[in-house]
Design a binder for these strands. Sequence first.
DNA 1: ACTTGTCCTGTCATGCCGTCAGCTTACCGA
DNA 2: TCGGTAAGCTGACGGCATGACAGGACAAGT
Lengths: 215, 215
Amino acid sequence: MTGQVRTVDGRVAGRRGQATRQKLLDCLAEMLSSSPYRDVKVIDVARKAGTSPATFYQYFPDVEGAVLEIAEEMAKEGAGLTELVSGRSWVGKAAWQTSEDLVDGFLDFWRRHDAILRVVDLGAAEGDKRFYKIRMKILNSVTNSLTDAVKELQAKGKVDKEVSAAAMAGSLVAMLASVAGHQKGFTTWGVKQAELKPNLALLVHLGITGKKPVR
Amino acid sequence: MTGQVRTVDGRVAGRRGQATRQKLLDCLAEMLSSSPYRDVKVIDVARKAGTSPATFYQYFPDVEGAVLEIAEEMAKEGAGLTELVSGRSWVGKAAWQTSEDLVDGFLDFWRRHDAILRVVDLGAAEGDKRFYKIRMKILNSVTNSLTDAVKELQAKGKVDKEVSAAAMAGSLVAMLASVAGHQKGFTTWGVKQAELKPNLALLVHLGITGKKPVR
DNA sequence: ACTTGTCCTGTCATGCCGTCAGCTTACCGA
DNA sequence: TCGGTAAGCTGACGGCATGACAGGACAAGT
């Protein structure tokens, strides 16, 4: 696929090298969960990994570069989110189930990767194409499936033609991503997870099918 | 309101002092729009403002502190977003108009303050209560109004009782905020502003009233 | 001109960044 | 077994940002 893993100065990384590289990535990921992105320093990551800053720079151009690596890894897993939508039914009771499963899967994925997703989100919002691409990779896996679903329903005459399938799918996915990113915020504000999920599912259902769900 | 503006070491800032302070804030805001948050350095802000780093530290404890100041300022303006919802009708054709206006106003506000809102969003997602509070202040102004709207419709029996008004309003507002924050992303991906807005309005309408809009 | 309080900056110690030369370690073929 | 070679790591260094302070510049009133 991408050939071998290489150091910044072009060497091919061997067993040991890949191990330390991975350890650095792991430590970086951990730091991102525990301290603000702005305060994550190379020296801290290196210390945590029991190595020196110079070693870090052997494998990554800078913190951002390493973050991209982690994000790329996560994006691979994220591509699997397609399963939540593709091949699922958007008719009758099944549609409600599909909506619920989508919301569940989405929130869960976000919770597992919240730290790195925060940074990806920021990078994308700041206009960095590399981060934007990764964000797309994850969201598109769902967005495209949803877009198809809407188009299909439109073809059957079950949804208004004037609805832009892409815009609708994109908006819904953006909503899921945003809510997922602020899950803690919602709960401290007084909205419980238990009531959040059904409402998100309701909105998804409404957006895709244009109708109230049959439960 | 908050008494006088004070320097870090407790002095009261006079006319001239407040001017440079403001200039520093303006320059910081400008920097935030043009370069990644992580790379914004005190020295650059000071240079841009035609002053020295030491001056910056007279008025702010650090970059984050100054950002909070700007955010606070913006939040005051953001409180005015309530107007987009409160006292508006959610029945018949008027409801569609209300939805459209809300979306318009929201996207516009976000576009005008996108840089600072990005940082606030990040801070909030990272769990910083100060940023979280500011984000709440802005979003709540809309969320609360929307919550009331839903509750009112529920009281009239026009919306299912099982819908959690708060969760619904919160989700919709989160969606608006997220889409607003990635407006550029949407356009480069091929979704035009022109089709994005009506679809958002449609989702808002569906979420609040539970019905398709009458246009 | 002098005083007073506000305002700004030169300077300095500290600490992180990013790079390099050079040392150690692992692998491999003879 | 023994070099030879490439991989792997680090100490050390110049450069820059940070944050604190003391002292100089400035405006306003007397």
